[in-house]
């Protein structure tokens, strides 16, 4: 009997998230290695509409788990719906994109279906006809190769797998399950947009970006001063700085922030976690300043400076002012 790979689809306003399409590309590779058949599972009030779209686009079977009234993501309700659906589907591999929602959903699901779970999968290889999954550990300083027995839930790191729309002759079809009365132990009260204002980050040709290595909020002034040496420049930062309120969220670079591609990206005291890299990989020229010569940000940099950011930026500002 064939093995089965199931992709759990993240969607919003009837649109499939790009990270899910990457997870589907990963799942297709996995299906080849393991000789599996692949399907997508869509949960929600509008599951049917999305299933038809996706079946057409990917040419594969889509399972629509229609739960009337479930208009937004709810981890508890989704897990409940998926367990019911998996009762029949019995997937060996479950693939989910590692977004905030994916991580919220999938790891508890693994426990519930008695499966293993591997998060932040960035690469896949093959050894003895078995898939080998790689992910970074220790904030990107080393990579680990993992094997895991099915059934397993695999969470893919956004930005690590490429989805390209292919033409195919399979029609793909849709199967439907209807479920009523999801559990209600967690409830969404409201949802709002954090920042409507445009920070101008996408237009900046130079971005001086701060990480936790800058140590204090006051040190942002030095980065602003350095940014002032360039025209069309902006400061930005990693997520912990925005979480701490040092910078507004619209200046956060990364998976849950902005994706930028300036002429110059200067990373000051940023370690280079995958979720940060996902937002700045497209930069034309990258300069990194870090006290740790093994910081993974250097693997993504054109110029590396192993130094204290404060000492270096002060010297840099002085040198840039010197026109002799």
């Amino acid at each position: 009997m064939d093995n089965k790979v199931a992709v759990i689809v993240e969607h919003e306003n009837s649109r499939v998230s790009p990270a899910t399409l990457e997870a589907a590309a990963f799942a297709q590779e996995l299906a080849l290695i393991t000789g599996s058949i692949i399907s997508c599972v869509i949960v929600g009030g509008d599951a049917l509409e999305i299933s038809h779209q996706l079946a057409h686009e990917l040419g594969i079977t889509c399972e629509a788990v229609v739960v009337p009234g479930l208009s937004h993501y709810d981890g508890e309700a989704y897990r409940w719906a998926l367990v019911t659906c998996f009762g029949e589907l019995c997937p060996d591999w479950v693939c989910v994109a590692g977004t905030t929602q994916g991580l919220d959903l999938a790891t508890g699901l693994a426990v519930r279906i008695n499966a293993g779970c591997l998060a932040n999968v960035e690469k896949m290889g093959e050894k003895d006809h078995r898939p080998v999954f790689s992910r970074s550990l220790f904030n990107g300083k080393v990579y680990g190769d993992f094997i895991i027995e099915p059934p397993a839930v695999l969470i893919t790191q956004p930005g690590s797998f490429r989805y390209s729309q292919k033409s195919h002759d399979q029609k793909g079809h849709v199967q439907t399950i209807h479920l009523l009365d999801p559990p209600g132990n967690t409830r969404l009260i409201s949802e709002s947009r954090i920042n409507d204002g445009d920070s101008g980050l996408s237009q900046a040709s130079v971005i001086i970006s701060a990480g936790r290595g800058i140590k204090s909020r006051e040190n942002l002034a030095l980065l602003k001063q350095a940014a002032g040496m360039f025209s069309r420049s902006s400061v930005a930062g990693s997520r912990p700085l925005c979480d701490d309120g040092w910078l507004p969220y619209n200046l956060q670079v990364g998976q849950t922030g902005a994706e930028v591609s300036p002429e110059l990206y200067v990373a000051c005291g940023i370690s280079g976690a995958q979720q940060h890299l996902a937002g700045m990989r497209g930069s034309k020229f990258v300069v990194s300043i870090n006290t740790d010569p093994n910081a993974p940000i250097f693997n993504e940099s054109d110029i590396g400076i192993v130094d204290d950011f404060e000492t270096f930026l002060n010297d840099f500002i002085e040198a840039a002012q010197d026109r002799s």
Binding site: G116, C117, V142, Y143, I147, I148, V286, F298, I303, G304
Partner: peptide, 19 residues
């Protein structure tokens, strides 16, 4: 049900950094 770590490697450079 846990995953098994079989090997660790250092990351490859995506850009050729000049220190």
């Amino acid at each position: 049900r846990g995953e098994i770590l079989t090997r660790l490697t250092y990351p490859t450079r995506r850009r050729s950094v000049r220190f």
